[in-house]
Nucleic acid binder design. Structure first.
Length: 483
RNA sequence: CGGGGCGUAGCGCAGUUUGGUAGCGCGCUUGGUUCGGGACCAAGAGGCCGCAGGUUCAAAUCCUGUCGCUCCGACCA
């Protein structure tokens, strides 16, 4: 980037200089969030929340299309409920917030502020489920959860965050497993098609799985600094919770059986993924499908032509709005055109439409893409179609670009020395053979800070030797340093 | 939870070493000129120097404590 270009983005630290600071500059200056008086908690500002609402819409539609219904369960969970599943408590106890008083009265039983809702939902399912005819139960809820984190980062890890959590109950393992994988694929589809974030679906190791789950599946994304981010998880809970919460049903054959359950969730962390996959030194870059503002119309209005240009801009604005584009008209007089260009780029708006006196003379508008910086002119007649087409192209290009980046930053090796070198110098994802032993996994983590992000469903290539211990292995794992 | 860095105007910082009337740039307000990649002139407003104690005639400055943000490690969506 030349010096001239740097001047435009003087408000944002460059990724190269300090990636973490870049991220913080972007979330603050694009006004996605602000810090709050409560440690670890953030305020999601209107622009950030609009982004979240678009994410919600895309996910909610898919969740409903796969037969689930939304419901709402309480924020507070009695301590005794949380205690029931041993692994689950152990996993979450260190980071729960407790309610000990109601007004000035001490509570007979402490309440936890939900860190996740398995327990309270199981409590209800045990009442609701009696017969095989009651199954499957397919419920989702959108809510906030609280996990008392020691180290927080906006969107990536906050003490309170927003998410959806699906909780289902099924007759048997087969159905539960199918549901678990179906929802993982819903997340994959959403991440790729709406967020333009390519992901690697796979299974978590025993060490990395959800507290209380039988199996955990994940979609993993690669950020532009070479670190991986878990972008959504889907758990097959087996009969673990059913046994302790006594969720049983009378099956067709007349015997009483435990249900098989699943749970799956995706959170405001997805916003962090979008920022770190697509953002650059100019700031945010949002894929059109979730961008709160898909295109901004900037009139260039010198004094002599102001009236004419503004009138025409207004008309174009209404026309494009009607065509279904999420559009903003920036006719603020106190800012110069150039200032606006930079601000909207920082906010990640996918497309800018410039309309000035010269354009009016030639009956066209100037369109500038956020993803490539490419500038094209298009006739005013039928501009709606052109804009819609460009937005689709931008969406596709952003996914393609992210995919290319991920491919260029995925290495394959079974050589531990090389593995260490890659992790230190280049980072990214590393596909290596793994013997399946937890000891090797933990040793690699200890020695390189890289963890197994997931075990892919379709391991490619021939068998090899475990990265760490060298024993024969047909299993490959994706390793990376992670957020 | 351990180690480092930072808290002074909305934002970015100087001032702290050596205690003595709180400063700069950007932004903000008003008026005017401007508008095709962060325009310009003029006049203004804005501070319990993170918070609480202490030392002192006097504290942004020295001491103690505390809170917050941040980076690096151990735990997590």
């Amino acid at each position: 980037m030349g010096r001239r270009e740097k001047e435009f983005v003087r408000e944002i630290t460059s990724q190269e200089a300090d990636y973490s600071q870049w991220y913080l500059d972007v979330v603050l200056k694009a006004q996605l969030m602000d810090y709050s008086p409560v440690k670890g908690c953030m305020v999601i500002r209107p622009y950030g929340f609009a982004l979240w609402e678009n994410i919600q819409q895309g996910l909610d539609r898919r969740i409903k299309d796969t037969g689930h219904k939304n419901a709402y369960f309480p924020l507070f969970i009695p301590e005794s409920l949380l205690q029931k599943e041993a692994e689950h408590v152990e996993g979450f106890a260190p980071e729960v917030a407790w309610v000990t008083h109601g007004g000035s009265e001490k509570l007979a039983e402490r309440l936890v502020v939900r860190p996740t809702s398995e327990t309270i939902i199981c409590e209800m399912y045990s009442r609701w489920i009696q017969s095989w005819r009651d199954l499957p139960v397919l419920i989702n809820q959108w809510c906030n959860v609280v996990r008392w984190e020691k180290v927080t980062r906006p969107f990536l890890r906050t003490s309170e965050f927003l998410w959806q959590e699906g909780h289902t109950a099924h007759r048997n393992e087969e159905e539960a497993e199918a549901e678990t994988l179906l929802m993982l694929d819903v997340y994959r589809d959403f991440a790729e098609n709406d967020l333009a974030v390519p992901v690697i679906p796979g299974r978590k190791t025993e060490n990395e799985k959800f507290a209380g789950a039988l199996r955990t599946y994940t979609i993993e994304a690669l950020m532009s600094d070479g670190k991986a981010l878990q972008a959504g998880t889907s758990h097959n809970l087996g009969e673990h919770f059913a046994r302790v919460f006594d969720i049983t049903y009378l099956d067709k054959d007349g015997t009483l059986k435990y249900v098989w359950q699943t749970s799956w969730g995706a959170s405001t962390r997805l916003i962090g993924a979008v920022i770190m996959v697509h953002g650059d030194d100019r700031g945010l870059a949002l894929p059109p499908k979730i961008a709160p503002v898909q295109a901004v119309l900037v009139p260039i209005a010198p004094k002599q032509a102001r009236e004419t240009v503004l009138r025409r801009a207004q008309a174009l604005f209404s026309e494009l709005k009607e065509a279904g584009v999420r559009l903003e008209l920036d006719d603020r007089e106190e800012y110069s055109a150039g200032w606006k260009f930079n601000e909207w780029e920082m906010k990640g708006v996918p497309l800018r439409i410039e309309l000035g006196p010269r354009d009016l003379e030639s009956g066209q508008a100037v369109l500038v893409r956020r993803d490539t910086g490419e500038k094209v002119t298009a006739p005013l007649a039928g501009l709606g179609g052109k804009v819609a087409a460009l937005l689709l192209e931008i969406q596709a290009n952003m996914l393609e670009k992210a995919r290319r980046f991920r491919e260029e930053n995925t290495s394959c090796t079974d050589d531990y020395g090389e593995f260490k070198r890659i992790i230190e110098e280049r980072r990214g994802l590393i596909v290596s053979h793994w013997c399946g032993d937890s000891e090797c996994e933990l040793a690699v983590k200890e020695e390189t800070k890289a963890t197994i992000r997931c075990l892919p469903f379709r391991p490619e290539g021939p068998p090899g030797r475990c990265l760490r211990c060298g024993s024969q292995s047909g299993t490959v794992a994706y390793f990376a340093r992670a957020y």
